[in-house]
Design a binder for these strands. Structure first.
Length: 360
DNA sequence: AACGCGGGGAA
DNA sequence: TTCCCAGCGTT
């Protein structure tokens, strides 16, 4: 349930918002270009990622891959390496695949409508509308996390924004409110407002250009919007990590392409249950999982890392191989031996970087 | 409709 | 600590 009152003053609201954006907009590199490829690149990098965090990655990608063709022609491992540390690595894989589709099926330039853009991997409803409105001026609204918060306050939405019906309604409201004349600026203004003024905990209503239109503010409940559904607490996981060194080189394994940290490299690791000895898990894991018997040695470090859905503690041990043979990991797991000086070519998860500096 | 998927900065 | 970010794809 919500109030539709802001729609009756939509024209004035748009005017105030666009005027504010013109004055207060941050000077960001993707706002200085009309290149659809760069707009696209920025939008993918910024999915679930703050501007400050994505900015340096955007700069490096533009430098390294100046157009879709350069990105499409690059090996995936190089793209993943450039993406290293940014998280949600499926984005990098999909971006790379989409660039190849653009190269092969669209003559090197991204398609020009939201409907067509959404057919590319990694481009959903939000990203398609963002590219189409900003790069091509198509009158389609965007709804991201910022816009959801802004709209739920403007209209005093009293149902959970995690509910599908509410989500659908927010998209409808966004399109009703949209400036048909300046859709790109309007969309960016809504997101900018959410990021800078209409923040989650302590919104700056005094500095808000559209405070007069805000129904949540009118009822004094702005800090209680949006309403979110309860989420389940993260689980815990304990891993032991085997740093196997042979002739000055370390054994690295590549994670499966799908799933958590897909395509990244790491040291062999095994989950431990409470009560199990780390040495025993390491010995058994290396013997059965890698077909490489080892003798566990001293601990390198114990690091913890928080993911979205669980927390992991990793206890890292040096291990000595008991024979000179190569491992035979189960299934199609790729492995390699690499010296520390060669690590810079591999994309590692952040958790690995937490102890990699301690190795010789 | 629900869930998996990273990492970091703000409060 | 907790929250949540210019979301998407799979099941």
């Amino acid at each position: 349930m919500y109030s539709a009152a802001p729609l009756e003053q939509a024209a004035a609201l748009r005017r105030a918002l666009l005027h504010w954006f013109q004055e207060a907009a941050r000077d960001l590199p993707w706002r200085r270009t009309s290149d659809p490829y760069r707009i696209w690149l920025s939008e993918v990098i910024l999915q679930q990622t703050r501007v400050d965090q994505g900015l340096p990655y955007y700069e490096r990608f533009v430098e390294t891959f100046p157009d879709a063709r350069a990105l499409a022609d690059a090996p995936l491992d190089k793209v993943l390496k450039l993406w290293e540390g940014l998280g949600y690595y499926t984005r990098a894989r999909n971006l790379h695949r989409a660039a190849q589709v653009v190269r092969d099926d669209f003559g090197g330039a991204p398609p020009k409508t939201a409907e067509l853009l959404q057919m590319l991997p990694g481009i959903g409803r939000y990203t398609a509308a963002a590219i189409a409105s900003i790069a091509y001026g198509e009158p389609v609204a965007v709804v991201d996390g910022n816009v959801k918060r802004v709209l739920s306050r403007l209209f005093n939405v009293e149902t959970s924004i995690d509910d599908t019906a509410t989500d659908k309604e927010l998209w409808r409201l966004a399109n009703l409110l949209l400036s048909r004349k300046h859709p790109g600026d309007f969309n960016q203004a809504m997101m900018e407002l959410g990021a800078r003024i209409c923040t989650p905990r302590t919104p700056d209503c005094a500095g808000c250009p559209v405070a007069d239109f805000c129904q949540a503010r009118k009822h004094g409940v702005e800090t209680e919007r949006p309403i979110r559904s309860a989420k389940k607490p993260p689980g815990l996981k304990d891993l032991v990590v085997a740093v196997v060194r042979r002739d000055g080189q370390y054994l690295l394994v590549k994670r499966p392409e799908e799933g958590l940290l897909g395509g990244l490299w790491e040291f062999p690791s095994f989950e431990t249950r409470p009560g199990q000895s780390h040495q025993q898990v390491l010995e058994a894991g290396c013997k059965t999982g890698l077909k490489l018997p080892v003798k566990p040695g001293g601990m390198v470090s114990a690091v913890s890392h928080a993911y979205t859905h669980f927390k992991v503690t990793m206890t890292v041990y040096r291990c000595t191989p008991l024979n000179g043979k190569d491992p035979k990991p189960s299934e199609h797991t790729e492995f390699t031996w690499a010296a520390r000086s060669e690590f810079e070519a591999f994309a590692f998860p952040k958790a690995v970087h937490k102890f990699i500096g301690l190795l010789d």
